[in-house]
């Protein structure tokens, strides 16, 4: 491997079982390098979300290792978890914006709570809003924004403190096809600017059109890992 033995993200023999004895992940081995764009596809319940939640340590693997930046996230001290999360931007299907704050303030929130200096906040928030194409909507509140605009705000919030990894769980799940393409173009731009992107999705058209790496999952296993892949192999 030219990029070193360890990728940016590496999962080694990872299993995840929930207390109700549901096994969400089975012997997952996965390596993602810096700058990759990876689609994680599969039916509902295949383990996509669980896989993503392990990366920013919302969940901890039952067995195996999850390495991010070469560090086993399960071994992180409790006080180091926030630092890991500052290197990973997260985007959800339901945006998770704060309804009582404007677009600008939602983005600024991520910097405020990580104790960024006021000067930085003033500088970076407008820059990021411009990047996601919402320069003119900064004062609008979430209920005044369309779904696509809300997702752009969420993306702005995820990237505002400059994470190297962006994980997205069904980011286009609530959006119509045109709006979805807008979001995908934005993600692609971010990827070209150096962000590593891992996106769980059901959006077959998008996956097939973009020709990125595809990790297909079913019943908690990786059943296919294909560079420039498609959503599903047609069984002829």
């Amino acid at each position: 491997m030219q990029k070193g033995l360890r990728g940016l993200i590496q999962l080694v023999e990872v299993w995840k079982a929930y207390p109700n004895e549901v096994i969400a992940l089975r012997e997952i081995n996965l390596k993602i390098d810096r700058g990759d764009f990876v689609f994680v596809v599969g039916p509902s319940g295949a383990g996509k979300s669980t896989l993503i939640r392990l990366l920013y340590r919302e969940d901890v693997a039952t067995r195996g290792q999850v390495l991010v930046h070469g560090k086993n996230v399960a071994r992180l001290r409790h006080s180091s978890i926030p630092l890991l999360r500052r290197t990973i931007g997260v985007i959800f299907q339901d945006f998770k914006l704060l309804p009582d704050r404007s677009a600008h303030d939602n983005v600024a929130f991520a910097l405020e709570v990580t104790e960024a200096p006021r000067r930085e906040i003033k500088r970076r928030v407008p820059a990021v809003l411009e990047l996601v194409g919402l320069k003119d909507r900064a004062r609008a509140f979430p209920h005044e924004l369309s779904g696509g605009e809300q997702q752009r705000v969420a993306i702005a919030r995820a990237i505002v403190n400059g994470p190297s990894i962006l994980v997205a769980d069904e980011p286009t799940g609530n959006l119509d096809p045109d709006t979805s393409w807008g979001i995908m173009n934005l993600l692609q731009t971010l990827n070209r600017n150096g962000a590593t992107i891992i996106m769980a999705t059901h959006a077959k058209t998008i996956v097939n059109a973009m020709k990125k790496r595809v990790v297909a999952m079913d019943h908690g296993r990786i059943i296919r890992d294909q560079a420039q892949g498609v959503y599903a192999h047609e069984v002829n």
């Binding site: 006080s79 926030p82 999360r85 998770k96 929130f109 709570v113 990580t114 919030r157 403190n161």
Partner: peptide
């Protein structure tokens, strides 16, 4: 709780929250 969830997500420390 949503606010707290987002704070944790973007990497706010427990002390700060």
């Amino acid at each position: 709780r949503h606010e707290i969830g987002i704070m944790k997500l973007v990497g706010a420390t427990d002390g700060f929250i």
